[in-house]
Design a protein around this nucleic acid. Structure first.
Lengths: 202, 202
DNA sequence: GTCTATAGCCAGATAGAC
DNA sequence: GTCTATCTGGCTATAGAC
């Protein structure tokens, strides 16, 4: 693992994250990453061998910053409603600090289907089974309405993730400036949870 | 390939759409577009001058396939609930036939902020004012709960668009195969509408 | 209008001095 | 480990024959 190794490696990695997150694999330039790090191109290859490998390290890091958190929320001992509240709150708080992360992940999964498949076959992926069962139990209890649990799962992710990915579009269509849009994002922590719960609570 | 496109320009354009939608501006190759069209690279430049101009034509076309439809739904004479129903139904039906379209648009807006700004400054954009006012009226009428209208607008877009953009991720997390995921998408036409309406109806 | 051939440039990757 | 210089290949774009 990466510990107190050379801090050059970490410097390169941090710069690579910045550039790859903003421009994606195809759009990023090794020279730009080197400039961002204040060193020369050759060092990137010295530490990471190739652009592809550097990208894969960046992607894995990005994915691992999100996946375990999501897994933990979905598989905790909490009630269904608590999970919905926790998920939206935690996810939005985290992504506000890492604004390009979801766009980057989703974009690269779409643009590199082969890489995506290979990655998924070896990565630890958040499990949703427990969450889905809790929904079914709620339906049978009569505490929540009859919905397809998978739709509800998709809803939850869509409501939390898309406002970041679609920001340029949504900011225009809601007709607000950047700072007002940020306030909407913060407000969403509570909004999404209450909206989801309202829609299923009997 | 479509037979109706007897002329070369349209053949090139159709091929460019295919490739740009799948790989984006940075990832697309002029050679690949030429191969897709079954002609040689030089023709692309003969008809469209440069990769950038070809891309801009493709992007504009993509945007114009969606924007007017959305504008029309949001600004019709229909009631709020009818608009929600129409929007989700129409949008999902259309995008199922043009699967890469939303991903392409969103991705390029994120990757090319300068182009995005320049584009937005001259493109006709769907207006949401009327829709937002209808929500406020509903709140004052007492027919719907007290929500921030802009949040509801963001919700509606998120629920309809993200399932396409995030398909690779969502398919994995819901643990279904491609055909089952497609069925979920079709089911969403009704699901989203009823979920939105349930969440705000008093 | 359509092709082949190629110019010209730029990106990723490597060699080798220090 | 870090640098400069350079190789090699691929990409956009153009020239020019037909």
């Amino acid at each position: 693992m990466k510990k107190l190794e050379s801090n050059t490696e970490e410097l390169i990695f941090a710069s690579a994250i910045k550039i790859f997150h903003k421009k994606g694999l195809a759009g990023a330039r090794m020279q730009e990453i080197a400039d961002e790090a204040g060193i020369n191109k050759a060092m990137l290859h010295y530490y990471f061998r190739s652009k592809q490998l550097l990208f894969e390290a960046v992607f894995k890091k990005a994915f691992m910053q999100l996946a375990p958190q999501i897994h933990q929320v979905l598989n905790s001992e909490d009630s269904l409603f608590e999970k919905i509240i926790n998920f939206t709150d935690k996810y939005i708080s985290f992504v506000m600090e890492n604004r390009f992360l979801p766009t980057f992940i989703i974009q690269e999964l779409n643009n590199n289907p082969d890489f995506a498949n290979q990655f998924f076959s070896q990565a630890e992926f958040p499990k949703s089974t427990r969450f889905l069962i809790q929904i079914e139990e709620g339906i049978q209890n009569g505490t929540i309405k009859n919905v397809n649990p998978k739709q509800l799962l998709i809803d939850m992710f869509s409501l939390a993730i898309f406002p970041f990915i679609g920001a340029p579009l949504l900011q225009k269509i809601t007709n607000v400036n950047e700072s007002a849009y940020n306030n909407l994002l913060i407000e969403r922590k509570k909004h999404i949870a209450s909206m989801l719960i309202n829609s299923i609570k009997k």
